[in-house]
Nucleic acid binder design. Structure first.
Lengths: 222, 222
DNA sequence: CGCGAGCTTGACGTTGTTCAACTAGAGTGG
DNA sequence: CCACTCTAGTTGAACAACGTCAAGCTCGCG
């Protein structure tokens, strides 16, 4: 358990003692793929991170159209925006692959981090980085159309998540659509179009970026 | 100047001495309506707040289509997301009416606030509240269509900005569109449609909400 | 009085969603 | 081991939603 906590960047600044206390108050639960881990609107008693696998956090729309905000990798904290002020989850978190999830009680987290300047500073920086991501998301949804949005989604997966030009993330076409803010069918059409034009290479669920510069261009022109 | 600082909720937690130091290092500049105060992408040396009037912060799209994120009222800080990590403005800030703007040097702000637990905690809460607003924005742009988005914009102006059912904010139709994420023409059409249906009452730039419950309903169904 | 910015309206075209039908592959039970 | 089912993926066609364009209007201000 301690090893897991060590991997969370925010917890690097805690003393061994604090980490030990935290470790005593964590629970790890296993999830199958596609399960909801935290439900938007529900009471937020915990903050959470994955120890392996992959997740997604998303906004649930009224007409069962979801919008994926971020793909969540292991050791990234989820639920910080619910820690203070409002105590409900603003987003849902679900597993994309089979995954183990570590739950940290809200109270113990607050006890340990509150009043710790370095932690506070890091939380603030975390929010700044996230805010920038949200702005990009808003700009994409507001100003760009299909091709631009889709290119953004692919580039995001490549740069931020896979950190490789080869995407083997076992993400469905539906999820790709929800990440780009377009319909599943549009996502499929764009995939085969880009594949046909040699900009990406499709092999089942595996996507390889071939001409990233063209994708960047698509992203720019919207 | 001290009076102005007193009105910024974050600064209420500073000692008189700290406030005095801050006051010495502020500049107030007057802007006419429609002027850009902070430019997206430019180097962020300051954080900023209005002492009167009204502003807007927005994302500048490539095709000169802007997206207004928030209407900014006096004594609300702008530029906090640029304080840490990246030091460029992620958004532009412009005046809607004639306004006076107080510039606070980034360094002096950091000197005074860093290491102050109460301030840190409040900044974090500030970000949590903002994050929720961004999520709403994303959900609106991603899931709702014209009517829902527009209702959101009107309700936002009524509840959060004017805090009244009567909107006399000297906001143009273009800005209304940019706030809702729709075209100017659509904004105009919706205004007259809602006016015709007796849901709002239009008198030039003055908008009065008549049947807010219907607006809420429009917002819900998207 | 005239000019220009903002506002308004209608017609038109594009974009992207929706619907429906079909295919492929993975798991399940007899 | 084979049929069945269920989910994910794919494709085409029709339709609705909005943006764009163009033209005319209004009002405030010099």
């Amino acid at each position: 358990m301690l090893q897991y906590l060590e991997n969370v960047s925010l917890f690097k600044f805690l003393t061994d003692e604090e980490k030990a206390r935290l470790a005593e108050n964590c629970t790890i639960i296993k999830y199958k793929k596609g399960e909801t881990i935290c439900k938007q609107g529900s009471f937020a008693n915990h903050i959470v991170f994955l120890t392996d696998g992959l997740g997604k956090n998303y906004i649930e729309g009224s007409n069962d159209k979801n919008l994926i905000i971020e793909i969540v990798r292991p050791f990234e904290l989820f639920g910080l925006t619910s820690l203070f002020k409002e105590n409900v989850f603003h987003l849902s978190l679900a597993s994309i692959t089979e995954t183990n999830v570590c739950f940290i009680g809200k109270k113990i987290f607050a006890d340990i981090t509150e009043g710790n300047n370095i932690i506070s500073k890091n939380i603030i920086e975390y929010f700044c980085v996230k805010a920038e991501h949200y702005f990009k998301k808003i700009a994409g949804l507001g100003n760009k159309q299909l091709h631009g949005r889709f290119a953004d989604a692919i580039l995001y997966l490549s740069k931020e998540i896979a950190q490789s030009k080869v995407l083997e993330l076992s993400i469905t076409r539906k999820e790709l659509g929800e990440l780009a803010g377009i319909s599943t069918e549009s996502a499929i059409r764009l995939l085969s179009e880009l594949n046909h034009d040699g900009i990406i290479k499709l092999e089942g669920k595996k996507i390889t970026l071939i001409k990233d510069n063209l994708l960047e261009k698509l992203s720019e022109i919207g």
